[in-house]
Structure formats: structure tokens, C-alpha cells
């Protein structure tokens, strides 16, 4: 499989995360570099959903990144991780 186009990954993640924030009543603007978990805008409940969504959609295994959520702490960070060659789905 070829590398997913960066803009597509970003826009999909942005859409997904914005949806979750809206569900929580968080309507503040969100930039690609804003911290999601460190800031508290997303919580443990969102973490489970986000991780499993990335696992199924992009074939990334959370255990392979040492269960390190700080590597998924912004839209930019997620986009970078998803596009690492080792993270490509088989």
C-alpha cells in the first residue's frame, strides 16, 4: 500500500477529533499543533476511542509505540506517526 496523502490523514483526524470535542461541548478552535490530552481537552474515554480508531484505520498497534499517548497528543503528531513507513498497514 502506498503512503496515505498527508492532507487526507490530517483532515480525517481533524474531522474526527472536532466531532468528539463537539460531543463534549468543547467548541473552541483547534489547530493542528494544539495539545489534545496534555491540555485535558480529550480525556481517558476519548483516548480509548482514538487509539482504537487509529489501530483499525491505520494498522498502528498502540503497544508498538510503548502505550505512549504523548505521541498522539496533537493532530500533527498523529499525522506524523501514521505516515511512518513502519506504521503502514500490511
Amino acid at each position: 500500500m502506498t503512503t496515505t496523502e498527508r492532507p487526507e490523514v490530517r483532515s480525517r483526524m481533524r474531522h474526527y477529533i472536532t466531532q468528539r470535542l463537539i460531543m463534549k461541548g468543547d467548541l473552541s478552535p483547534l489547530s493542528d499543533d494544539d495539545l489534545l490530552f496534555t491540555s485535558g481537552r480529550l480525556d481517558s474515554l476519548d483516548a480509548v476511542e482514538l487509539i482504537m480508531s487509529i489501530e483499525t484505520d491505520y494498522g498502528i498497534n498502540f503497544s508498538d509505540i510503548g502505550f505512549d499517548l504523548t505521541r498522539l497528543d496533537s493532530i500533527s503528531a498523529i499525522a506524523a506517526l501514521v505516515q511512518q513507513p513502519s506504521a503502514e498497514p500490511a
Partner: peptide, 10 residues
């Protein structure tokens, strides 16, 4: 309060 909207470090 658990984490409602606040940084986990807090």
C-alpha cells in the same frame, strides 16, 4: 474531579 476538561497533570 477526574479529568473533565482539565490537564491530567493537574
Amino acid at each position: 474531579d477526574a479529568l473533565k476538561g482539565r490537564p491530567p497533570a493537574e
